[in-house]
Computed example of a mutant assay.
Amino acid sequence: MEQPLFDDLVQSLKEAKAIARREAPASRRFTVTPPDVKAVREKIGLSQSEFARLMRVSIKTLQNWEQHRRNPTGPAAALLKIVLTAPDVVLKTLHT
């Protein structure tokens, strides 16, 4: 390995260690805002039970999302984003 590349890698590791110990600020931060599940559901005009069935989750899970006790993650969060941007496609695809 070339010395300049090795030195860059060592410096990166030192910076990562300092950030992990909170001795240095992170150069980038990402804030992911969870979708407003109730607003998404109301936008497409479904009841809680209908929307829970569409999302393949229990009504209790949906209620927890709507009351901000829990946030959808992973595939559920991705599907909610799709519902928000293309509700007609989602309804046509999943409501069969």
Results as ranks from 00 to 15, higher is better:
Ala86Asp: 07
Thr73Trp: 05
Glu42Phe: 07
Met1Phe: 12
Ile82Glu: 08
Ala20Gln: 10
Val89Arg: 15
Asp88Arg: 01
Gly74Met: 11
Ile82Thr: 13
Ser12Asp: 02
Pro4Thr: 02
Val37Lys: 03
Leu79Lys: 09
Glu66Lys: 01
Leu62Trp: 02
Glu15Gly: 00
Pro35Gln: 11
Met1Ala: 15
Pro35Tyr: 03
Asp7Glu: 01
Leu80Met: 08
Val32Arg: 07
Ala78Gln: 09
Arg29Ala: 01
Val10Ile: 11
Arg21Trp: 02
Ser27His: 09
Trp65Lys: 08
Pro72Val: 13
Arg41Tyr: 13
Ile19Lys: 15
Arg21Phe: 06
Lys17Met: 11
Lys92Leu: 02
Val89Phe: 12
Ser49Asn: 12
His68Tyr: 08
Ser58Val: 14
Ile59Glu: 14
Gln3Ala: 03
Leu91Tyr: 01
Ile19Phe: 10
Thr96Lys: 15
Leu9Ser: 06
Arg22Gln: 10
Glu15Tyr: 12
Ala86Asn: 14
Ser47Phe: 15
Val10His: 04
Phe30Gly: 03
Gly74Tyr: 08
Val90Gly: 12
Ile44Cys: 10
His95Lys: 10
Pro35Asp: 11
Met55Asn: 05
Ser58Ile: 07
Lys14Ser: 15
Gln11Phe: 03
Leu9Asn: 09
Glu50Ile: 05
Leu91Cys: 10
Gln48Tyr: 03
Lys14Pro: 01
Met55Pro: 14
Arg53Gly: 11
Glu66Ser: 01
Arg56Phe: 00
Lys92Ala: 02
